[in-house]
Design a protein around this nucleic acid. Structure first.
Lengths: 144, 144
DNA sequence: TCTTGAACCTCTATCTACTAGAGACATTAG
DNA sequence: CTAATGTCTCTAGTAGATAGAGGTTCAAGA
């Protein structure tokens, strides 16, 4: 059995984060030692590793909750998992598109800065007036 | 003079957001009407537009606070503004890099899904075990 | 002039995904 | 046995807003 610290080390997740996941019901309440400390088994480690990896791939916790409950029913269709993953991919794509537009605008802005005084600074000017922008970087309401 | 609603419309910022900006000291406290309603002039509109545009470019509010205080001192060097903008560009670049890696991994994962049952689902499998991943998508600690 | 409805006011709570800290108890190494 | 480290619960804080309750003010129409 693992204490919370060992579990955290093994899964690459900080201790308070594990307790947080338990609090929001993403991890089940574990056994306790005689002294009331949490004790985890192998399945908790697997579940936590699943969560961590999903987080690394950018899935929100609610999506992970759904994926976990899917993985608890191995005989069902995996169409739902496919949808969740595709949603996540679409979200990532949207963010990349938006960030790429931002990057272009920032580069343009920085390139124009002649390193003079604030009064002449293109950066300050551009920020103050969207009409100085080359393109529309206000892509959708996806607030990145 | 503009009421808060007109100001919001003119700048493209929601009313509660304007009050929030005032609360955190990003906008100065405006005049009030006899009935205690906020009244704004042209300079508030310019300042709010500046904030909005900066937010659209992804600058965090603290950076915007710095940029605003720079723009209040027009005779100083704009080197500081340049640094803030370059920092933001670096942050955007880092996020794009990370998201691009995530995108590749998600696409790979989805492509492998044979639409069978959960028991065979590659998505669930991959999420449960990082070793199924082609690359290291855990780029740095920049938690996107 | 009166009234209605929209816009405004303050205040508190909520969201995501954690992180930090206080003060107390448990465990383990030497 | 003691000291250091780990763990416990609880509260509060982070960014950047958004939502709602319950009440007031304003502008326009009848």
């Amino acid at each position: 059995m693992l204490t919370i610290g060992k579990l955290g080390n093994a899964a690459g997740v900080k201790v308070p984060t594990i307790r947080y996941y338990e609090q929001i019901g993403l991890l089940p309440e574990p056994e306790r030692s005689a002294g009331n400390q949490r004790l985890y088994g192998k399945s908790a480690l697997e579940r936590l590793a699943f969560i961590r990896h999903s987080r690394e791939l950018g899935f929100p916790l609610e999506a992970i909750r759904d994926l976990l409950s899917l993985s608890d029913r191995p005989d069902q269709s995996c169409a739902a998992a496919d949808i969740i993953a595709k949603d996540q991919l679409a979200a990532v794509d949207a963010r990349i598109a938006r960030l790429t537009a931002l990057k272009a605008e920032l580069e343009r802005m920085i390139a124009q800065c002649a390193q003079g005084t604030i009064a002449d600074c293109r950066i300050i000017k551009v920020l103050g007036d969207h009409s100085h922008c080359s393109q529309d970087h206000r892509i959708s309401e996806a607030v990145e």
